[in-house]
Design a protein around this nucleic acid. Structure first.
Length: 459
RNA sequence: GUGGUUGUAGCUCAGCUGGUUAGAGCGCUGGAUUGUGGUUCCAGAGGUCGCCGGUUCGAACCCGGUCUUCCACCCCA
């Protein structure tokens, strides 16, 4: 007997019902991307390794799926490297390509390669899978979809405001009420690191700070000490641990804390402008919240940082994130192009919506009407009827064999078909077809040539 | 990458301190019902107990390895 097939850890098959729900989310996101003036692009599933490596930090490099070279790749490795058993040295010799890790870096690469064809500011969206060699958990997969929208070539803070509105628009449309859009600014984090004299440890400082709400003040301090941040520096950062209140109150305290840091004050100014503009315009269902402990590990962010938390009570990591990166294209040789963008985590949004039961019932219906098969002669007539129903825009199908009524009805029931058409000997003689509405059990008769009337009746 | 956890029928799960032919519910197939589904009744099919190895007279059960699931780290959508 053949062995049981399986799929790799952290990957999934999607059933028709699941695909319908995923498409619903994608369509909604796509609709708003386009309403906001973004244009779609697509990039390859895999890139040259040097395009990706080193862009996401050491941790990121570890999580990038590397693709083995083709051919007899091992014989081309020199003996010293081969026998060193050092993965870091050996990897670049046997792997030149890697699966994309996110959509932002490939986009930066795209912008640089196509800079002469692009009209700036360039607003693009991209909905494609990405891969991470992570250990799977709930809401964490090795293959998952990101839905990104970015703008490059525009420095205005209005872009940040627009992205907050975009998040709000999408989540409102999906019926996902009560999301929290957390915002912070990398410059504030830099300013704090500068003020407390830990500028060189910025990343360690922010990564630790990011965990404040999760592990508490004590543990955060512990981790900072471990990373080599001095006791006195942590003491200086103390006000951060208890900062609270409205955005403007928090900003006021930050102004006091960061008075001596030019970059820190710049960050406060930016945040102030973004938040006050959003407050001025108003949001539909989301909530914008200043969170000075929000860090995000990606080290290419330079200005605003976003992260979206699911509604309260749902156990899920962030369902979206993004920020401004002033020099991402610089790595690929194009200077002075600022970008800002956000990402929607499709797979996590799906899980949250499933948990909150937010998918519309209509997604379950994959067929509007099933025509039962009574035999050769009747079947032929039914096929003509089905054709005219399809022409009228209905999703219609004919049961392929003249199986027993019970079986055909059972099939219709299972598929969740709302209407079943009976076209048997009697109907054929009368030049009519009978429609049974499955939910009510009621019958209605139509003339054979009036499929369009029926279509109109049920729409 | 570190630590833990899980795996028995299509699905959800029982299975005693190791002891003959591994069970239930749901689902599936057929029938009661040759033009009416969702209810009911009857019958039936379906399992290398994740995989490999070890201990034992004997392993679903104990041990080791491996894969998978979920969880906590790390990190992140």
């Amino acid at each position: 007997m053949a062995q049981k097939p399986s799929i790799p850890k952290g990957t999934r098959d999607f059933s028709p019902a699941e695909v319908a729900k995923r498409n619903y989310i994608i369509q909604t996101i796509k609709k708003h991307f386009e309403i906001y003036g973004f244009q779609p692009i697509e990039t390859p599933s895999f890139e040259n390794s040097e395009t990706l490596m080193g862009k996401y930090g050491d941790e990121g490099d570890r999580l990038i799926f590397k693709i083995l070279n083709s051919g007899d790749f091992i014989s081309k490795v020199d003996d010293v490297t081969y026998s060193s058993k050092n993965s870091a040295l050996l990897t670049p010799k046997i792997s030149e390509k890697a699966l994309r890790y996110d959509l932002t870096v490939p986009f930066a690469r795209y912008v640089v390669m196509h800079q002469n064809e692009i009209d700036f500011p360039f607003k693009r969206y991209q909905i494609q899978p990405v891969w991470r060699a992570d250990r799977p958990q709930k809401g964490r997969f090795r293959e998952f979809y990101q839905c990104d929208a970015d703008v490059v070539g525009a420095n205005s803070l209005l872009q940040e405001v627009e992205f907050v509105q975009l998040y709000d628009a999408v989540f409102t449309d999906l019926g996902l009420k009560g999301t929290t859009i957390k915002i912070n600014n990398r410059k504030i984090l830099s300013g704090i690191a500068e003020v407390i004299g830990a500028k060189h440890l910025l990343v360690d400082f922010t990564v630790a700070l990011d965990k404040l709400d999760k592990i508490g003040e004590g543990k955060v301090k512990e981790e900072m000490l471990e990373k080599g941040i001095s006791e006195s520096a942590i003491e200086k950062a103390r006000p951060l641990f208890s900062i609270a209140g409205t955005a403007s109150e928090q900003l006021e305290r930050l102004r006091g804390l960061l008075a001596d840091s030019e970059i820190g004050m710049a960050g406060v100014g930016e945040l102030d402008e973004i938040i006050s503009t959003v407050e001025n315009i108003g949001l539909q269902s989301a909530q914008l919240q200043l969170d000075v402990t929000l860090a995000r590990g990606l080290n290419y962010y330079t200005g605003a940082i976003f992260e979206v938390a699911a509604p309260e009570g749902v156990q899920m990591g962030s369902i979206g994130g993004g920020g401004r990166y002033d020099d991402l294209t610089g790595i690929f040789g194009l200077k002075d192009v600022s970008g800002v963008g956000i990402s929607f985590g499709l797979d996590r949004i799906y899980l949250v919506m499933e948990e909150l039961n937010l998918f519309p019932d209509s997604l379950d219906t994959s067929l509007d009407v099933l025509c039962l098969n009574f035999g050769e002669k009747e079947g032929l007539e039914a096929l003509k009827l089905v054709a005219s129903m399809r022409k009228a825009g209905l999703r219609a199908d004919l049961y392929p064999t003249a199986a027993k009524m019970q079986k055909q009805f059972k099939y219709a029931d299972k598929r969740g078909v709302p209407y079943v058409v009976l076209l048997g000997e009697e109907e054929l003689k009368a030049g009519a077809f009978v429609v049974k509405e499955m939910k009510s059990g009621q019958h209605k008769t139509y003339a054979l040539d009036t499929a369009a009337v029926f279509a109109k009746d049920i729409s």
